[in-house]
Design a protein around this nucleic acid. Sequence first.
RNA 1: GGCCCGGUAGUUCAGUUGGUUAGAAUGCCAGCCUGUCACGCUGGAGGUCAGGGGUUCGAGCCCCCUCCGGGUCGCCA
Length: 596
Amino acid sequence: MGELLQGWKRTSYCAEPMLSDVGREVILMGWAGVRRDLGALIFVDLRDRTGVMQVVFDAGKLDEDTFKKAESIRSEYVLAVRGTLVGRAPEMLNPKIPTGEIEVHVCEFKILSKSQTPPIYIDDSANVSEQLRLKYRYLDLRRPAMQRNLIMRHKIAHCARNYFGENGFLEIETPILTKSTPEGARDYLVPSRVHPGKFYALPQSPQQFKQMLMLSGFDRYMQIARCFRDEDLRADRQPDFTQIDLEMSFVEVDDVIAVNEGFLKRVLKETLDIDIKLPLRRIPYREAMDRYGSDKPDTRFGLELKNLSDIVKDCDFKVFAAAIEGGGSVRCLCVPDGVSLFARREIDALGDFVKVYRAKGLAWFSLKPEGIQSPISKFLTEEQIAAILERAQAKTGDLIFFVADPDDSIVCTALGALRLELGRRLSLIDQDRYDLLWITDFPLLEWSEEEKRFTAMHHPFTSPKDEDLEYLESDPARVRAKAYDIVLNGNEIGGGSIRIHSSELQETMFRVLGFSKEDAWNRFGFLMEAFKYGAPPHGGLAYGLDRLAMLICGATSIRDVIAFPKIQTAACPLTNAPDEVDEKQLKELHIKIDLE
RNA sequence: GGCCCGGUAGUUCAGUUGGUUAGAAUGCCAGCCUGUCACGCUGGAGGUCAGGGGUUCGAGCCCCCUCCGGGUCGCCA
């Protein structure tokens, strides 16, 4: 057993003392990092969440027992040391750490707790597999980089509470055990013991509750809300994640955007000391798809897409003609000086790359000094080729890639993905830039081939744009929504909309979505009924706190800014969740397992 | 559900055309060392080559299956 504190009180964190504190007696507590044992002189890097302080055990100044105890110190022992802060001689300075000008000469110390040899190094330079890191997450979180990330995440959450609080937002909690909603992602279900055969669902977002808070007159609401979606994981997707969620009454799109631009400016200033210029750029959805092939474009580099449909609609290349005939498009991407950058084999590999995005192939023009080399130029007239080169603003040495498909969204997303891939490979992306923009005017609905009906692109409570309202039932595909996403460096970090606040319009919306009146009332009746009692115009936005923190920390996965994340199978290697439960628990819940 | 990549000392990795006793670095243990900070020096321990099956005189290496991890498409209102 370790020694007891017995009245010892920490006087400061490890990295707090400065050169001006030299001469003071301090008591520090923390974990033993690297130990350098020179025989009669032992150096230990004592570490806590603020950093490290070198503590010195000198055989000439300590009694025999104390020094013997110092010799037994190993990695990750928990120590309390009492000693004097000493300035280091010029030849003993360590410029690599903030406390490198000082050290503590120990006169007395306690081993509060011993440690087995840790299975992973507590060091940022260590490159340990994520599997092992997550199994021993409590050790992984001792690494300075992880401590920095979680501290940064705290700063973001703290900034959100301060900013929205100062702007009249009230923080109000909404239930975790709630009702399953049919639209959207799969729900996590929780069986009810007192209602045999019935289930709660964990919220995918506090959407309906925050709308009802608007109805109750709270006017401005915010919450740092846990949300749950039972879908497959990604580097930027966890089943259990956090939103900075907010909603406002008596507002239109510009009002929501304005208050959030204030927040974004402040959070980037407080975390990264970056000044952003307001107002932010706004790009309509259609323009984003046309120019970047994405509704979350990375605008830190050019390489924009061009639509060639009008030029090639009557050409002799069947793939192009058929794509346009079928209602799709032909678009291209011009890579400056691409001829020298990509060998034929690499171009073929890029063809495989776009197939992942359901494109059927990748055509190309290689603009060599001796002329155009291309498998498809023989199907095009000189006029068509000239028009393509002009549209693509191509010059000798450039490489043009084409995608054609009867489904325009496939053309856009495949070329958009290719654009990003080329941007990365050719190092066109300025890693130091923070490029924020709004994407606006999303389609309200999208056609689901699988379900043979329109589904809400955002969610079924999103308001149509006033000028498109008349087409809601006659031509649903053409209706644009009062919806907006906030995009940072090609990542969607938040999204929101002005909501429907009329129960009649909400009923129409459910009808367009193919719900019978009965279905709609069964599932969302509580909300529609609420709207009959005086609903203010309202709208809001939710940020993905994890993604925002990831980008601000410079991490490549949201797992690195979540203390205890789950792996790709939605399991937790630390706790071994999910796990089987006792027969008794199942019985109380009236649940029988049927594994087939 | 599909596609791609990976699994070898505690850890990170190397391992040639299938061929002797599977290596390195680091960590760990022991000894020496009073100014180190990636301390140094000497010595030592440490392996179910993810698991199973197959081909072969012989498999870490080739084939099949399974498991595990990562990325991604689908999916994520």
